[in-house]
């Protein structure tokens, strides 16, 4: 028998907390979608706050507006905007999928479970919504990159 001190978590409560959100791949596509939806939501919130701050600079006159706008014209600014495009596309399309699934639509009807007990709600009909969201987000980011980095 070997003994190793690999974990120091003697938390009696043993709640996973935000740590439980990490490694979403272990539970399948729905958990990945859950994780992306949150991540993109937080990212868009940060963008929204920045966006309000940016537009409010108009009150400081044309020079202040141009100075702030110049920030988005850098390579880093473009990358940030491409991420915004991807995040907003995924969040919107996946959000529509979630509106339907949260009402039980596209999940199928309950029945008699049989071995190997594949969950009906994790079917390909609703799962394809996640893949479509990811593909559309990737396409939107590619198009955004093409426009922002000047080939168009």
């Amino acid at each position: 028998m070997e003994t190793s001190k690999e974990s120091n978590s003697t938390v009696r409560n043993n709640r996973e907390g935000l740590k439980g959100w990490l490694n979403p791949a272990r539970y399948g596509w729905e958990r990945v979608s859950y994780w992306f939806q949150r991540l993109t939501g937080l990212f868009l919130l940060i963008y929204f706050i920045g966006h309000v701050y940016e537009t409010s600079s108009l009150t400081g006159g044309q020079a202040a507006w141009n100075a702030l706008l110049a920030l988005t014209q850098t390579v880093q600014g473009h990358i940030f905007l491409i991420l915004v495009i991807g995040a907003s596309t995924f969040h919107s399309v996946n959000g529509i999928r979630l509106i339907f699934t949260h009402g039980g639509m596209g999940l199928g009807k309950p029945g008699r479970p049989d071995y190997p007990y594949d969950a009906l709600s994790l079917n390909y009909r609703q799962k394809s919504g996640i893949w479509i969201s990811l593909i559309l987000a990737a396409l939107a980011m590619l198009y955004g990159a093409d426009v922002l980095f000047g080939t168009k």
């Binding site: 729905e30 958990r31 979608s33 999940l107 007990y117 594949d118 969950a119 994790l122």
Partner: peptide, 17 residues
Amino acid sequence: FAGSCSAVCPKGVDPAL
């Protein structure tokens, strides 16, 4: 609807559904 409950259920209960 993270679906993890249904993914781990050993009896096919499908709680998420």
